[in-house]
Design a protein around this nucleic acid. Structure first.
Length: 479
RNA sequence: CGGCGUGUGGCUCAGCUUGGUAGAGCGCUACGUUCGGGACGUAGAGGUCGCAGGUUCAAAUCCUGUCACGCCGACCA
């Protein structure tokens, strides 16, 4: 009993205090550490390895659509930032400024990029002359800085890692197609690799990116019923092009403005993985994103042959393409089990003297704790099946949770009651007027998460004001 | 930017009210016994108490200032 109690105390139960649970999991899974600068985190090996896998998967998918990687500076001259009015108004409150170089005060202060639209525009203005130079489909992997007041590991930090794609096209149609294409890349990645189901849709004007004509988003629901914007793709039209003078000569020898897009996904997704799949024992990583998929845990490893067998299993499985480690530390097996669970390693394989004698090993799933006895000769086949099933189950479980926490509201009373009492998404009709969004935010703190591409007509009138409805909106309280 | 809270070995914290030579648990190191859900014994290493002033014979403790971090709000990926 005393042992059980100790286990429970390590990680706060998510039902008791979800925020504390999240912090505990981040800490116990050794994903990050705090630093002496508020809001700037050390991403430790276990956390960074997840990011590397996210990068690898996304980068591959990007390149399949013709994306090329580049790198632009981390500093933006103030004058450049100010060229597009909405954009600077959106970001000015949270940028960090460099005012000195060495001991000298700079003539013009430089902001540390909060996003790189202005730099890409400046660059494209020089690069693009002719329709032959189009399209430009560039992306960069970098960090950006936004001086947030409130910070949390992965979810909101002052410096975070991301990728930002910036494209320039000859026509509005092409830009729109690219905007949607990249949103779909994100959505597929989330569902196929991270096992996180998302709602694809468009942001309201109030919620869209500063300077964008349209912002598309994928929205995910966390375990506590709060929404997390998980990736965005923006269509800028020719707004930035006009502000920065990005023009090309068309085939008919007329001067035209380009149409641009940008799209990004960040280390925040690691937070989403934690909050969608995690449980009271710690992190649960979907097999397809896990840096280590299998931890082999020898039982009674001092006994003749046990460790050798554990290494042999590891080598065989690595050969078969799995990511495998052996925990051969001198901790007790119970300790190793807890470690593997806190770190979210999808399965562990227990191998002890009894198993060796029986020619088997015990596979234990992290998500369900289901124990599967597998014969050593077809361990690899069994493992493939277990990991595939687990990946599918995790997506379905997350989808079921989201669907069970998605409600419809037809009247304002019903809307307020639902949004306040039932954590999750509330679907309701909206007239398109920002006054209603403002009122809802004031009275409930909920925001319009998105207008889903898959529209349904729940009623003819706005849930808030009763005027004719223009769209169904997913509302929710968000991170 | 507002509210709350916290700074003492690597970690979690006690000590502060009432000033008097710095403590515990965990972790770490060595050796031995253990090993199918966080094992145990023995011996050890490790701290100018966030920082700066002040009061005092004497400050982790009292006073003033300052910095940092965490959580909750408003703003945001």
């Amino acid at each position: 009993m005393a042992k059980e109690k100790k286990l429970v105390e390590e990680i706060t139960s998510m039902d008791v205090d979800f925020a504390q649970w999240y912090t505990d999991v981040v800490k116990k899974a050794e994903l990050t550490d705090y630093t002496s600068v508020k809001g700037c985190m050390v991403i430790k090996p276990a956390g960074y390895a997840i990011w590397e896998n996210i990068q690898k998967e996304l980068d591959r998918r990007f390149k399949e659509t013709g994306v090329e990687n580049v790198y632009l500076p981390m500093f933006i001259p103030e004058s450049l930032l100010q060229k597009e009015k909405d954009h600077v108004e959106g970001f000015a409150p949270e940028v960090a400024w460099v005012t000195h170089g060495g001991m000298e005060e700079l003539q013009e202060r430089l902001c540390v990029r909060p996003t790189s639209e202005t730099l890409f525009c400046d660059f494209y203005a020089k690069e693009i002359q002719s329709y032959r130079d189009l399209p430009k489909v560039y992306n960069q992997w970098c960090s950006v800085v936004r001086w947030e007041k409130t910070t949390r590991p992965f979810l909101r930090s002052r410096e975070f890692l991301w990728q930002e794609g910036h494209t320039a096209h000859a026509t509005a149609e092409e830009a729109e197609a690219r905007t949607q294409q990249m949103l779909n890349v994100y959505a597929d990645f989330c569902e196929e690799v991270l096992a996180i189901p998302v709602i694809r849709g468009r942001k309201t004007d109030k919620e869209k990116f500063a300077g964008a004509e349209a912002t598309y988003t994928i929205e995910a629901l966390m375990h506590d019923g709060k929404a997390l914007q998980s990736g965005t793709s923006h269509n800028f039209g020719d707004g930035f092009a006009k502000a920065f003078g990005i023009q090309y000569t068309a085939k008919d020898n007329t001067l035209q403005y380009v149409h641009q897009t940008s799209w990004g996904m960040t280390t925040r997704m690691i937070g989403a993985i934690i909050m969608v799949h995690g449980d009271n024992s710690g992190l649960v990583l979907p097999p397809r994103i896990a840096p280590t998929q299998v931890m082999v845990i020898p039982i009674a490893q001092h006994k003749e042959g046990v460790l050798d067998k554990a290494y042999a299993i590891r080598d065989e499985l690595i050969q078969a393409g799995f990511k495998v480690k052996v925990d051969d530390s001198d901790k007790s097996p119970g300790w190793k089990f807890s470690e593997q669970e806190m770190k979210g390693i999808p399965v562990r394989i227990e191998i002890g003297p009894k198993d060796i004698e029986a020619g088997q090993a015990v596979i234990v799933r992290r998500d369900t704790r289901e124990k599967i006895v597998a014969a050593l000769e077809n361990l690899s086949a069994k493992l493939t099946q277990v990991l595939d099933t687990m990946q599918k189950d995790m997506l379905e479980r997350a989808r079921a949770h989201r669907d069970a926490h998605t409600y419809d509201a037809l009247t304002y009373e019903e809307f307020v009651k639902t949004i306040n009492e039932k954590p999750g998404f509330v679907r309701a009709m909206w007239c398109g007027d920002q006054a209603c969004e403002d009122k809802i935010k004031d009275e409930t703190t909920a925001t319009a998460r998105c207008m889903p591409f898959k529209q349904e007509k729940l009623s003819d009138v706005c849930v808030c004001c009763g005027k004719p409805a223009k769209a169904m909106v997913y509302w929710g309280k968000a991170y």
